[in-house]
Design a protein around this nucleic acid. Structure first.
Lengths: 332, 332
DNA sequence: TTGAAAGCGCTAACAA
DNA sequence: TTGTTAGCGCTTTCAA
């Protein structure tokens, strides 16, 4: 193709990559561009990568794409990366730490120019292995207890605070918190916020915290069954996420307890269709798509060597009040 | 690293790639493997790609990851590809044909070894451009009217048949079909099945077909509003997909019509949480994850030059009867 | 502003 | 069974 333009390949290369060293005359550039167009020429990304040591690809590691919070995040990431000319190599760990390790290793071997990781448990070998790797890395929604990387997520603390305030405002005093798995930062952050807000709003009042085995409907069902079977049950449940809330719904159905008349339930995440379940779930909504975009933007900044401050970005959350919460009944 | 093992680079290469021409002695292989391990050596995929003309990456083109049917498909694809050592480059077109064209072109420029396309409208420039490209291509869930590629999807025909049979069995005769956008093969296939089954079950009886503008809640709401506002409204609605069915739910709420007492509704796809909406939606379930796996398997077969027959694979669907369907009320 | 030459890290073809 | 040589298609360095 350089031939067709009547110039040296190096010149052609420079003409097509304006930011390469060495300015090219307009005349030559025009000839080269024209020749490229006529031949439908596209530079071989592989050869370019080999030379420049840049693969043009970013690895995106997710715990489980079937978890409804992830698709919007991945979309935000993917769109932002494509806009910047970067490809998006998707890797799903199925929530297995060993797979996380293996996939991150594989992505590194493939010379990804950056990594966006949404899988990090509070202890993550994979994330630890990245620390001195020099690979631009951004964590999303989940993070290890200790790490040096930028993090993007929703402002869960504010969400939990709003949720608890809402329940207390409705007159609830016997409120149980159903956490989620304790090896996830999400769980810990939400729980801490719950405790702090509790001390502000109901200092000294006894509170109930139950850990569930996972962020799943089954775990929520199981944990709530014990909680609600006994005497002196709570009048409101704050769930670690919407899945757990749905598990609570199932238990309520089983036990014949009416929501919201006899008990209020609040979720977290505002997954799709949570306005359509019965009763429509009051929950904390997180701008997941924006979280994804922001994470990708941050990665691009790092890659370009731009300063990134602050390194923690918590996007605003909002409590969406629907039909699953109501004033505490006087009967209790 | 070949140095450390005391052999020529080419020998090392052969030792690490057992299926390359030229067998290597066990002794040498052992030495090479050991040296590689000690150095943490991983062959550079870029250099390898340049030499072998294989990028190790497959492009996956989806219309919109936020559409709940897609994540399981993508997961199935992704898992199967990784198992085969192939990366999964994700591209989301946001349902825009121009983006589909641009992204496919970009994926080709990146020398993808294969393409899995879930975006194909009944007319797709992008798919057409692939016809003589030599790039292994598999279509999923959607396909153009005419194309030479393997296709994997759910057996929608069987699903619609079962759905209609179910409604007719419940005594419904005034049944309306709310299609979906007519530029999608999914719509056409489902509608054709509806018509054929109708002729089998209710020959001569008048049937109502309404086209919606999209596979969305809003489109379903809008189309059903006209349909249900008038006199002589249907006693059952078969929706082109679950989103449309949810739109119908909204209309029913607005008009104060009770489902399933006054009207039955059936969806298609069985998206997540359709068992939790109110009333729980009777719908056709499709093994989306398996669809994804099968599509990836097919692509691998093609890539390896294996025969693929049949070239159309329709995976079994099943009608899930829940709470949105009931016998036609005698009152009507 | 452009050309010449070298080389990124591998593996294919050929020779020993 | 192993070594030699060459070259994949770019971009970079150096020289003109």
């Amino acid at each position: 193709m350089a031939e067709l333009a009547g110039v040296h390949p190096a010149t052609a290369s420079r003409a097509l990559n304006p930011d390469l060293p060495g300015r090219i005359s307009e005349e030559t550039t025009r000839k080269v561009v024209e020749a490229a167009r006529r031949l439908g020429y596209r530079p071989d990304p592989t050869a370019r990568s080999l030379r420049t040591r840049r693969s043009g690809v970013v690895g995106v590691v997710v715990p489980d794409l079937l978890n409804p919070v992830l698709p919007p995040i991945v979309r935000g990431i993917e769109e932002t990366l494509w806009e910047a000319g970067l490809g998006c190599l998707l890797a799903d760990t199925d929530n297995r730490p060993d797979r996380e390790t293996a996939l991150v290793e594989e992505l590194r071997a493939r010379r990804c120019e950056g990594l966006i990781i949404a899988t990090a448990a509070r202890q993550s070998e994979a994330v630890a292995s990245l620390i001195d790797s020099g690979i631009p890395t951004v964590l999303v929604t989940r993070e290890p207890d200790d790490h040096p990387f930028p993090f993007v997520g929703g402002d869960d603390e504010a969400g939990v605070e709003a949720a608890l305030e809402h329940l207390v405002g409705l007159g609830h005093r016997r409120i149980a918190y159903l956490t989620g798995p304790t090896d996830l930062s999400t769980t810990v952050r939400r729980l801490m916020a719950f405790r702090q807000m509790w001390e502000r709003l109901l200092p000294g009042v006894r509170r109930t915290v139950v850990h569930t085995e996972g962020f799943t409907v089954a775990a929520g069902r199981k944990a709530s069954l014990d909680l609600l079977s006994g005497e002196d049950r709570p009048t409101a449940i704050l769930a670690g996420n919407d899945m757990i809330a749905l598990g609570v719904y199932e238990t309520l159905q089983t036990l014949g307890i009416d929501c919201p008349r006899e008990i209020s339930v609040v979720g977290h995440n505002d997954m799709p269709f949570m306005d359509q379940v019965h009763p429509p779930l009051t929950t904390v909504t997180i701008p997941q798509y924006e979280v994804g975009r922001e994470a990708a933007r941050l990665l691009l900044d790092i890659r370009e060597g731009r300063e990134v401050t602050p390194t923690r970005r918590l996007l605003p959350t909002r409590l969406v009040v629907r039909g699953s919460t109501a004033p505490a009944s006087v009967a209790h």
